[in-house]
Design a protein around this nucleic acid. Structure first.
Lengths: 250, 250
DNA sequence: ACCGGTTTGTTCTCACGTTCACAAACTCCT
DNA sequence: AGGAGTTTGTGAACGTGAGAACAAACCGGT
């Protein structure tokens, strides 16, 4: 099993995952941590372009993306030399280069499996379509919701998975089922030819070599916040009442 | 601004973020990467307990959590010596210890701001309550939805934010608004006393020192998958057609 | 009581990621 | 044309995380 790490991380890096470190094939090797930040830069550039900015420095862009400017420059240097010394970056040009590198200049067909509350929200999320992703089918096991329209698409039977994937050449699947069903759904997605999976179910998915899995886990994120929150509270009531020093960097 | 990093990752590490590396105060320092994995272990242990398992080895638990066993043991060693050599870990005991370390043995009141499709799904997500988080209020700016009940809670005016936070001593806020409103909502949450924010809006939030922000960004996750998918496709059609070697570790 | 088998906790090494600092290169002004 | 100022791209140092390997410790049987 391989999983795209991020510390992400990362998420932040992806907490669980054996990280392949760098990704290379035709082009140069791009560190996984950099890959995870490229979409952030892309979004920041789009915002700048919408605001009418035509040129920006690494300092400005870094501020908009919430990262260190040196890190930004190093990240961009993996893609090539798209800036001009003494001037900065052309917003539109850099935006296109990053979009091309990520692959969002083309159209990615996506299937969503599991149309509960979350699947419903995902189907309606406008951020997908505007960023190169096109939802081609909504699948659900429950016969009750069959045929119901969500975001302009009918909910279809899970049995149609194979035909949908084949017809639209779907490479990316989204799993939004309950945890109990996730592994089985995942297996069938992989068997049908899907090679990238975005998993919202609170489970660790096992997949064969060559298939990428990324996990989005809402309660884990909250638990990480709770951990830090507890530490803050301990520091507050702790022996020294050390003002604002909720954390000590060791 | 400080943000809980996570190589992540996870995003995996959180892609954007200056990482504080380790967290310490009263107890020992715990690496940020370890903190991000603790909830995963907790979930795996709960699954084992539900299956009737009373004892497990680091190998078994690591498999259930999808990590290397050496990494698991090292992670657990930061919390203390809760295992028995030659035997393994007592599932229930370890589960409690991790839960206590994370802070989910206590109850965390949470407010959700922005009750659109996503906020709706979050309000209905059962995984929160079962893991020590209690949603105390749903807030939305739109007057139209005022009073409507979602998951047993009425949608209240955003103006009630301050009183709700004060009354329930809320430390954690969830932002599920459109991107344009996110920063303003964030500012008011912080001003009201919230010190941890889970952000679903596709924006970088600026917060003062001492406030933690974690970001969950759906389209970024898809873009990372698209990047790898594109690389796979390039490898496929590339010069050597190098079988399954979609990635070359440099 | 002792010995073999098992599993944890920890040390050590290596690779990755971040940041600093600076040379190269470009623009603008004189 | 030349120089001052600015900004990129990159080399090097540092800190963190991952994984292998091993010693310490525990159990059970004889």
């Amino acid at each position: 099993m391989r999983a795209t790490g991020a510390a992400t991380p990362g998420s932040p890096l992806d907490p669980t995952a054996s990280v392949p470190a760098t990704v290379a094939v035709g082009g140069a090797a791009i560190p996984e941590a950099t890959v995870a930040r490229l979409p952030v830069y892309l979004r920041a550039l789009t915002a700048l372009a919408d605001a009418g900015t035509t040129t920006c420095s690494s300092e400005e862009l870094a501020a908009a993306a919430g990262v260190n400017s040196a890190k930004l420059r190093k990240d961009l240097s993996y893609l090539g030399s798209y800036g001009t010394r003494g001037v900065g970056y052309d917003v539109e040009y850099l935006r296109y280069q990053i979009a091309r590198e990520i692959g969002v200049t083309q159209d990615w067909p996506v299937v969503i499996v599991g149309i509960g509350n979350l699947g419903h929200a995902l189907a309606n999320y406008s951020g997908f379509r505007s960023r190169g992703f096109r939802i081609v089918a909504l699948l659900d096991a429950a016969a009750g919701r069959r045929g119901e329209e969500v975001a302009g698409l009918p909910i279809r039977s899970f049995d149609e998975l194979e035909s949908v994937v084949a017809e639209h050449r779907v490479a990316i699947g989204v799993v939004a089922t309950p945890a109990a069903a996730a592994q089985e759904v995942c297996d069938r997605l992989v068997a049908a030819g899907v090679t990238s999976i975005l998993n919202f179910a609170p489970t660790v998915l096992a997949v064969p070599e060559g298939v990428d899995v990324r996990k989005v886990d809402l309660s884990i994120e909250l638990q990480i916040l709770a951990f830090h929150e507890q530490r803050k509270a301990q520091a507050e009531g702790g022996a020294a009442r050390a003002a604002d020093a909720a954390e000590v960097i060791a």
